[in-house]
Amino acid sequence: MRLSLADVEHIAQLARLELSPEEKELFREQLSAILDHAARLQELDTEAIPPTAQVIEWRNVMREDQVTPSLAQEEVLANAPEAREGYFVVPTVLEDHA
C-alpha cells in the first residue's frame, strides 16, 4: 500500500488537520508502512464472521428522561477561547461555505 501525496492531503482535509509539507511526507511514509502491516488481515477468510463493535452483551440501556441541574453557563464558558454574552465566539462561518 503506497499512499500518494494527494491521498495524504485528502485524508488531512477530511480530518480537518493542517499539515506542513514535512509532515505530509513523513505521514505518507509512516501510514503506508502501518497499512502494509494491516494488510496481513486479508490473509484471513472472514466472510462468515460477524463484526464486533463492542464486547458488552447488553444493548439499549434506557433510563427515564428526567430534568436535572446541569453545569452553570459561566462554568461552561470559562474554558472557551473566546466568549461573549453567553455565546462562543467564532470567525465567519457562512460567507464562502453556505
Binding site: 480530518a15 480537518r16 488537520l17 493542517e18 499539515l19 506542513s20 467564532v90 470567525p91 465567519t92 462561518v93 460567507e95 464562502d96 461555505h97
Partner: peptide
C-alpha cells in the same frame, strides 16, 4: 484564521 474552516484545521494542526 480567516474563517471557521481555517480555524479548525489550524487549531488541530
Amino acid at each position: 484564521a480567516g474563517d471557521i474552516w481555517e480555524l479548525f484545521a489550524r487549531t488541530r494542526g
